[in-house]
Design a protein around this nucleic acid. Sequence first.
DNA 1: TAGATTGTTAATCGATTAACAATC
DNA 2: TAGATTGTTAATCGATTAACAATC
Lengths: 205, 205
Amino acid sequence: MEKISEFTVRRLSNYYRILLDLEKRGIPTVSSARLAELGGITSAQVRKDLSYFGNFGTRGLGYSVTELKNAIVEILGLNRQWTMALFGAGSLGHALFFHEGFREDGFYFKHVFDVDPKKVGTKWNDVDITHQRNAEEVLRRDPVHIAVVATPPEAATDIIELLVRAGTKGILNFAPTQLTVPDGVWLRNVNLAVALESLSFYLSM
Amino acid sequence: MEKISEFTVRRLSNYYRILLDLEKRGIPTVSSARLAELGGITSAQVRKDLSYFGNFGTRGLGYSVTELKNAIVEILGLNRQWTMALFGAGSLGHALFFHEGFREDGFYFKHVFDVDPKKVGTKWNDVDITHQRNAEEVLRRDPVHIAVVATPPEAATDIIELLVRAGTKGILNFAPTQLTVPDGVWLRNVNLAVALESLSFYLSM
DNA sequence: TAGATTGTTAATCGATTAACAATC
DNA sequence: TAGATTGTTAATCGATTAACAATC
């Protein structure tokens, strides 16, 4: 397979959400031009993105909403369950754990780790909050696909190292810490401050 | 001023955080090569990014950590207070409201809006939670620089419209809704599902 | 001075867009 | 068939990197 850029993958996520909405509204087909309009991009971009993965449309007619949605579900790997472990049971961790959209997409939390003795031993839904010192052992015994790091920045580096040792292959990091991972491990950073600072930059102009 | 890309602005945010850390560790100077190493990019990229805004270094010696940090603070507009309004007092809104890093950077919430009668009338710290139907009036009387939207996706479109009417110029949107704003209004989207779907895509390969 | 490192220009790389033959 | 729209190639645009003169 030709190398797929992160840009393309992010747009696929967007097409997926747009198609879900069209399907809910009972719209049977969509053209690349309409999909582009709804996504705020060009129709050439839409067709180019899809062309990496196959031919999903019909010339003259466009795309079947349901078929294209199902194809993107396959491409993004959303046709199965993804297990996750949460590090950090603070307010951000809480928001992520209880975020409806994740479970609907097939992502669900199996483990929660924290260092706060007041939290360790309690439960969120039916998931125990475990002390972080046991995380490596727990994840070796009962691995997850993805770890979500929502701890203070100082804690993130150690957590990444234990995750690599435990064999976790996907990491979503919310801590504003520069992290590196070996080949074969996928790391995505979400930095809330960066988005705000981009606004303050453009608002200052 | 030459047009500055969003890529450059995001890297400036990163340089800022790296420089804060170097300063805290008492390191007086840094070269573009070292800054690049810490940020996981190339030294040419660092020098190019900075060159849009001025000459901050000394040939042969590199950059003064404190001076460069202060210069970036100016560039990003972090040398002042930014007022914000939060829409949606759910668990994500709660996490954002109580997020330490924002206030440290000069961003703070002045208003919180929600539609839940159980929440309206209560307070977070010293900020009243107000019914969303009064948001436009409140924001006209007491405007903010930035609105943060952490509501269900169905609510986002109406909120964006009221914000535009109220004259709010910066919007940080967490709702997975395709939104458009007129010229002069800056919108940034943060979509948590997109980051996870990018992981599931690459993990599926 | 000699070594180090910036600031900037030119070259490269990769992503987006335009254009159009294929075809429903 | 005629009009519409895909899939793909080539052209364009913009971002990154290499290279190096300037200079501390």
